[in-house]
Simulated scan of single mutants.
Amino acid sequence: MSVITGGKLKLVQAALKLATERSNLTSLGLRELAREAGLNPNTFYRHFKNLDELGLQVLGYIAGEMKAGVRELRMVAESSEQAATNTVAFVYNYFLENKAATTVAVRELYGPSPILRRALEQQLNASAREMAEDILDRGLIPRGLSEQTVQEISHMTIRYILFRAMDYIEKPAQREAIQQETERFINRQFRGALLDHLSNDELDALTSGLAETD
């Protein structure tokens, strides 16, 4: 995670605050941004060429800490279920502690700036790749799933969590249920993928065995 300080940090923090009150980062005015940051408007161009460049810095600022924390949790997990539980708890707690950052990230994923949309997509894809790499390297899933399958599930998982982010923030009474639902979503994706690798005969045998236990 790159460290930003001084006037650049003040502008990033001001942009996060103001963007939660607007539709997106690129709708901000330079004068109001500088005023919120307590800086001279001309200071903006010492740090950024335009609002898109500021937006890229804001998105990087958002992503760094969360990605580092999530990866650390996966590296100490002993199973995919434990990894799912720990990761979901950490990420949703991050959402609560960084409501402005989360709101901005969700909005910009579908915002008007193609530069910021691509940047967010790249960050989401990078997070999914890291998730798949950690799962495979740590052996957190049973053998039988291909690297491509694990990457596909990781890709869906990252987007599902971001999709539920605003509900988690705005609906306190549903937070526990959303967290449990997200854990079930992740675990079901992996279990379902394992079933996809079974032959028809193996599926029939499994189905028959389940029927006999009912």
Rank of each mutant, 00 (worst) to 15 (best):
I4E: 14
I4L: 13
T5I: 10
G7C: 02
K10P: 03
K10E: 08
V12N: 03
Q13V: 09
A15T: 07
A15K: 04
A15D: 06
K17T: 12
L18F: 06
A19D: 04
A19K: 03
E21Y: 03
R22M: 10
S27Q: 12
S27A: 15
L28G: 12
L30Y: 14
E32K: 13
L33W: 11
N40W: 05
P41A: 11
N42W: 10
R46K: 12
F48P: 06
L54P: 05
L59F: 09
Y61H: 13
G64A: 11
G64K: 04
E65Y: 01
M66F: 02
K67V: 10
V70Y: 01
R71S: 02
L73K: 09
E78F: 07
E78L: 10
A84M: 07
T85R: 15
A89Q: 11
A89I: 09
F90D: 02
V91P: 01
Y92C: 03
Y92I: 01
Y92S: 02
Y92W: 04
Y94F: 14
L96W: 02
N98L: 03
N98F: 05
T102F: 01
T103G: 01
T103H: 06
V106F: 08
V106R: 06
R107N: 13
Y110C: 01
Y110F: 12
P112W: 01
I115M: 08
L116R: 05
R118T: 10
A119T: 06
N125F: 08
A126N: 09
A126C: 00
A126F: 07
A126P: 00
A126I: 00
A128N: 05
R129W: 04
E130Q: 11
E130L: 08
A132L: 02
E133F: 03
D134R: 00
I135S: 02
G139D: 02
L140M: 05
L140I: 03
L145R: 01
L145T: 06
L145Y: 02
S146F: 06
E147H: 11
E147S: 14
H155F: 15
M156C: 05
T157P: 00
R159T: 04
Y160L: 13
Y160I: 03
A165F: 07
D167A: 12
P172C: 01
E176P: 00
A177S: 09
A177E: 08
I178V: 08
Q180H: 06
Q180W: 00
E181W: 01
T182V: 05
N187M: 15
N187C: 09
N187W: 07
Q189G: 15
Q189K: 13
Q189L: 14
Q189I: 00
Q189S: 14
L194E: 15
L194Y: 11
L195V: 15
D196Q: 15
D196V: 12
L198D: 10
L198V: 13
S199K: 08
D201P: 02
E202R: 14
E202Q: 15
L206G: 10
L206W: 12
T207A: 14
T207P: 00
S208M: 13
S208N: 15
G209F: 08
